[in-house]
Design a protein around this nucleic acid. Sequence first.
DNA 1: CGTACCATTGAACCGTTTCAACCGGGGTGG
DNA 2: CCACCCCGGTTGAAACGGTTCAATGGTACG
Lengths: 278, 278
Amino acid sequence: MIPSGPIANGADIAGDHPCFGCPVRHRALCSALRHEELARFRRTGIGRRLAESDALCREGTPAAHVYTVKKGALRLSKLLRDGRRQVIGFAFPGDFVGVTMEGEHPFTIEATCDAEVCQFLRIRFVAFLADHPHLDRRLFGVAARDLAVAREQILVLGRKTAIERLATFLLDMTRHSTQIPGEPARAVLPMPRSDIADYLGVRNETISRELGVLKSKRLIRMIGTHKLAIIDRAAMERLAAGDDALTTWPDPYPCWPDPTRSPPASLQVVKADAAPEN
Amino acid sequence: MIPSGPIANGADIAGDHPCFGCPVRHRALCSALRHEELARFRRTGIGRRLAESDALCREGTPAAHVYTVKKGALRLSKLLRDGRRQVIGFAFPGDFVGVTMEGEHPFTIEATCDAEVCQFLRIRFVAFLADHPHLDRRLFGVAARDLAVAREQILVLGRKTAIERLATFLLDMTRHSTQIPGEPARAVLPMPRSDIADYLGVRNETISRELGVLKSKRLIRMIGTHKLAIIDRAAMERLAAGDDALTTWPDPYPCWPDPTRSPPASLQVVKADAAPEN
DNA sequence: CGTACCATTGAACCGTTTCAACCGGGGTGG
DNA sequence: CCACCCCGGTTGAAACGGTTCAATGGTACG
């Protein structure tokens, strides 16, 4: 509804430029930058290679950098003081992480597997933003998308059963693997079971068990521990959407759309001196 | 970290202006607008009065307006297809709701009690944004704050017990009631128990029961059904933070901050031709 | 003052957790 | 080269927190 800024289409990068060959140079925030300034800013990023569980930053520490994911995957997580962990989300190639309004990181960022990121100094990034105010719109777009994802996850954690959460997650993961048209969708899970469990708000034993249920119901087929095929996508989508619940729900929660409640009659205009079309 | 735009301090509104006397004219997005344009835009908003359960918009319908809350409270909620409901969040006086990148509302917005909002036509709002690009930064700030709140709620729903969720919520609610220094903090709950339950991902019976537990432990004292006093704030905060869990947690989740894991030795610079301070 | 609806309380049930044992693959050292 | 071990993943059985269903209580509103 609120239009995003224009997508950059500047000249590409020469072979000796640090961004040359970067798998996400046309995605992430990089694609919002243009022409010469683009090249100048992107050159300030340095690559870092991470192994599983290597941390980019920790919850509560001063935020000194922002990052673009080039390969692998990251997990963003928060801890309760007694050690319970919640994975807030994962970041995949092309994602941009680490931007915050506060001075310190709101969560820990670690690799879930071998990964590569491009790291930018935050003060340089902030200065660059000041020189390029048109990026604010773009930044808002990134935050708005993240917000929609986070709110969807609130629905998942608040109201879905374990198997529904898992189905939702597996379908999501197909979007991060290249698909062959006509073939069953593939999902790669580039993280240990414990990360999936902490993302979905259950224990890893539950992940194992519900994966077993999906297998025995022939909705999925495992291809090793970290890869699988979605055999019956329609059934998975019904499951993820909460359609297959065996129980009918009590009255006070009408299914949407519910024409019987559509026009709230008691809505009334208090001040009528404004334009009528409002 | 990313600085917000300047706060408006323009001349106030004359007595015949529709915004005169609005309790939030110095807050919400209104405070980001300035001087004459400010007055012109704010005049385009019309007031609406809502009774409990009156809807401003419904999940999935085209987004035609944006709103500022003046009085009362709103709930933002999503439904699963079988009717399970999740309250994504509440909006209180001064909050700005309804902005979305998509063309349709991602959730239903209803009043939880008698409420008043100021309603703006979206196309007019978008046009105003186009004329005032400095507002993009402000808009990003709003989205970033909402994002932090949503992610905190993910932690609550994914990892906290029912009583911890309730303690977290009650402490939050004290920030929306005026406090008397030296007195025990007061919290007003301007919504039915079912809204609190659907916000915290439990049934309303559970809310009743856990409220009973907090009462019997002398952490809170009810003052009618919709008001209460926090008697032992320190204990409530420990409870909300997950400090009081009776069980010690297994090893793999170190408490933060954990110096033993701080410097990930395997972090290595891949390209070293960038500035050294990066 | 009655009544309807929200809130509370009780008891049985169930999904997920907890605790424990087992499996299997990859890396290491003998 | 093979045995061993370590650790992530899987499976089983018992315990528990929250749900479900049902009945009662309270209160706000007509």
